[in-house]
Amino acid sequence: MKALAARRHHRLAPVVLLLLALLATGGVYALLAPSPASADSANVQDIETGKKLFQANCATCHGINAEGSDGVPSLVGVGAAAVDFQVSTGRMPMQMNGPQAIEKPAQFDAEQTAQLAAYVASLGDGPAVPTADQVDPSQGDPASGAAIFRTNCAMCHNAVGAGGALSEGKFAPSLMHTSATNIYQAMLTGPQSMPVFNDANVTPEEKRDVIAYLMEQREGSAGGLTLGGLGPVSEGLWVWVVGLGLLVGAAVWIGAKSS
């Protein structure tokens, strides 16, 4: 990691980062670890570019100095992690008003996202984008993660992270395809309806455990097809469709006259 840190300021760094991002979208989990940009390492130039991006794309709602307005949160002190989460998942910039901002293809590339994050981080202290180590599932303990997840997360996101409903059309999204970094950032910053789980509440190690647990769920179920991981309702639906469907078919065949 030291070698990587040393090259961070290389002029080819953005290219490398871009490549990394492309590879990540290709589905290589190991590389899902994010653009390792954090507030303290961002240089002045990044902040300047970020400011321009912000004023062009975000200031309409969040205000020219990110001070927010009625119904729009101030971004002072939200930190780089919040910006990276909102922008890299495409939730921001928001395209239309709805019960909540929804995930869509990201509007900015990894470099621009990092610049935006650097700018917002420069406005006030806030949580930084986690390092690759912090979100590495292989270093987490899935058993501890399962326990933390059950108590703190499952009531909204469902036992295996398949998502669930909130009030008035809002919902807790499925975590089946969320990157490890975004999961970490969401816990840390509490986007939208989600409460904040700061490091005193769920420690950084526990956050990594949660990520380890969630990554395990992507292996599917030991029992076979997961049927969406939605629990008894989908199981009930399938017993009517598959079980009773096949057997009524068989019964019709048994009752029909042979030719």
Binding site: P195, N198, A200
Partner: peptide, 8 residues
Amino acid sequence: DVTIGSVF
């Protein structure tokens, strides 16, 4: 430790 917006 209980920051605004936190739930424990």
